[in-house]
């Protein structure tokens, strides 16, 4: 038992050191930003932990544990920090499974003046260094769906999407919207198919799944997000954006997120007005990426469950 514990602690320490060395060699600065903040993510599909600030010299207020360090890191970028990375805990309520834990370690980094292709190359180099080299397959979201799910995610009718969902998962699909159907097909059909592939870069997600990424038009005229995800053996490891820099668009997406939250019966989240102000000041064109570091350790150790690689997961609180 002690040998297993030592091996996992040592592997974690080695990978953290290797990641830090990787960025140090490339002139990317390590930063620490607050994990506890008065604004949170309005993403309707992410739930923040909240807590209450009491006493001290400020008024009582609700604070959010960060679902990612994105907003503060963008504020640093807007202030002229240059390339930065952060290794720190993120918190997502209601997420607990073999591949989820309500608290997990995220590696997030931003590259001013880089486009998504440059960031993708750097991400692959980092993963090669940490997990060993392996071939990368690149495929668009659309092509992956056509090949592995058997339908075009942009052209298929909602009825066809729902039928496919019902067929593969027995879900009562009549309540699912388009993105809900696509998420289900991705997790039930596409991800299992990707298990057989060492590493996959999936890119050009539907514009409705852009989150904080820019939107462009693909070769066949579909609106797509400037976003990619890295899958290793079918495990979602990293998510990257060509970052949205337009303050007005960002404000719109915050409002839309809260509107969707209301529709889902979820509490609204206080949007980060400081981030909007920072974008108004000017966020440099940049690309950014978040990588689940505990999952990377899982892959490095050949583990099948986060619980095997975290010191104390929620299963062992």
């Amino acid at each position: 038992m002690l040998a297993v514990l030592n091996a996992k602690l040592k592997k974690r320490a080695e990978l953290l050191a290797a990641a830090r060395l990787f960025f140090a060699c490339r002139g990317v600065l390590e930063v620490n930003t607050p994990v506890l903040a008065p604004a949170g993510s309005t993403d309707p599909l992410l739930d923040s932990f909240t807590t209450q600030l009491e006493g001290g010299s400020v008024a009582s207020q609700t604070l959010y544990l960060q679902t990612s360090p994105e907003f503060y890191m963008k504020r640093l970028l807007a202030e002229g920090s240059g390339a930065i990375y952060q290794l720190g805990p993120c918190f997502r309520n209601g997420e607990l499974s073999q591949r989820h834990n309500p608290e997990f370690l995220m590696l997030e980094w931003y590259r001013p003046d880089w486009d998504l292709a440059q960031l993708e190359a750097e991400c692959c180099t980092l993963v090669d260094e940490l997990l060993g080299e392996a071939p990368y397959a690149r495929m668009t979201y659309k092509q992956a769906f056509i090949d592995f799910v058997g339908l075009d995610p942009f052209a298929a009718s909602l009825a066809d999407l729902r039928n496919a969902c019902q067929a593969c998962s027995a879900i009562d699909a009549d309540q699912l919207d388009r993105d809900g159907c696509l998420d289900l097909l991705l997790s039930h059909q596409l991800e299992p198919a990707l298990k057989g592939l060492e590493r996959v870069i999936l890119y050009e997600f539907p514009a409705s799944q852009a989150a904080l990424a820019q939107i462009h038009q693909d070769a066949s005229g579909n609106q797509v997000a400037s976003r990619f995800e890295l899958y290793v053996k079918g495990l979602e490891l990293a998510n990257a954006y060509q970052e949205l820099t337009l303050a007005s668009e960002q404000a719109k997406r915050f409002a839309a997120g809260n509107a969707q939250r209301r529709a889902l019966g979820k509490p609204e989240v206080i949007a980060d007005t400081q981030l909007i102000a920072a974008l108004e000041q000017g966020l440099p064109d940049c690309s950014g990426i978040a990588l689940g570091f505990d999952r990377l350790i899982m892959l490095a150790l050949g583990a099948t469950c986060l619980d095997e690689v975290q010191t104390f997961s929620a299963y062992r609180w």
């Binding site: 993403d43 599909l45 992410l46 209601g94 997420e95 607990l96 499974s97 073999q98 989820h100 998962s169 879900i171 993105d179 809900g180 998420d183 289900l184 991705l186 997790s187 039930h188 799944q209 989150a211 995800e229 979602e236 998510n239 978040a290 689940g292």
Partner: peptide, 14 residues
């Protein structure tokens, strides 16, 4: 019971 959730996507329970 399996909790399924893409990083940016809807959660399902299989």
């Amino acid at each position: 019971i399996e909790h399924i959730k893409p990083g940016k996507g809807q959660a399902f329970t299989r």
